[in-house]
Design a protein around this nucleic acid. Structure first.
Ligand SMILES: [Zn+2]
Ligand SMILES: [Zn+2]
Ligand SMILES: [Zn+2]
Ligand SMILES: [Zn+2]
Lengths: 163, 163
DNA sequence: CGGGAAATGTTATAATGTATCAAATTTTCC
DNA sequence: GGAAAATTTGATACATTATAACATTTCCCG
């Protein structure tokens, strides 16, 4: 698995996209799932940056490309991608982002920069463990964790200090 | 501070409501904030159970009571209550729930039962600490944490096993 | 009182997400 | 290969959640 680029640092983002698409194809092949052209194109659009994209933003890009698309087109593709662990929905933003750890078993932890909008997905096993322990202490059977941290990324934080 | 009732166990819920309203009045007085009749009524409606309530559910109850209310009425009251730490928004449900630790500095962790719909708010300092550590390790300045765990509460979990 | 701020009323609209059913495509299995 | 079944897509309509904008009222303070 390639090492993770930091979203808020300049990087060869095309490599992120290529890697994500290659991973997605491999995962879908392994799961006997059909990564159809629309689904793949939606995934690629989601990965166009490290900023979460709204469903209607995706829709706008699809229609701009001449595809006949309606809201269900996008939501169905996003549902598929979520179910196969290729994208995550950011509940606090009503938006979607490519999974940075597709294929790895993980509960995503998202660091969302309020200033630049970029999102970093961490695995943070320590956090996951603490959450599981806390749930277990309450005899609660945890099935799905939503963990989203809004704040300032290192870059925006340092910029806001020396202005 | 009164000890917390477990939402999914039978309890004298009127006590929860009374306590929440008394706390709210004290907090608003201390902060020089105006807990107007509509705001107080919305808080009371939110506290009518331990299940999160949608803004439009609140609206329906207000209009049923004869109040002339529109969406902004409710959203403004909810904004006020959130800003003063009296209710939380559950992002994964687009719904609102009374804060079980009003006045205490905390980052809420919500255990949401998929079966009965009840929500328990925990303080879980261990989790908060782990989250802070993980954010700090990435040089990320965390400002707001959304932590929502969907699953099965002890009651629903045990019921689903011996049926 | 009176002037300014805060809160509310009112209407309209934006943004996000689903239900439903028909048509097309792909897979399965003989 | 070809019919039947399952999956995917198209298309329309609608439901739900949230906000913009501006007028009016109420409250606070001097
Ligand atoms: Zn992920
Ligand atoms: Zn940033
Ligand atoms: Zn709380
Ligand atoms: Zn339950």
């Amino acid at each position: 698995m390639a090492s993770q680029a930091l979203p808020y640092r300049p990087h060869n983002h095309q490599a992120c996209v290529s890697q994500a698409l290659a991973d997605a194809r491999a995962i879908c092949r392994a799961q006997n799932a059909r990564l159809t052209p629309t689904r793949e194109r939606v995934l690629e659009l989601i990965w166009q940056s490290h900023k979460p994209l709204g469903a209607y933003d995706v829709l706008a890009e699809l229609t701009a490309e001449g595809q006949s698309a309606a809201p269900p087109t996008v939501y169905r593709a996003l549902d598929f991608l979520q179910q196969h662990g290729l994208v995550h929905r950011i509940a606090s933003l009503n938006a979607f982002i490519g999974c940075a750890h597709a294929g790895e078993n993980h509960t995503g932890m998202f660091l969302i920069c309020r200033s630049c909008g970029n999102v970093l997905e961490l695995k943070a096993p320590g956090v996951s463990g603490a959450i599981e322990d806390a749930a277990k202490a309450e005899h609660f059977k945890a099935e799905d964790v939503t963990l989203e941290i809004a704040g300032l990324c290192p870059r925006c934080h340092s910029e806001s200090r020396h202005d």
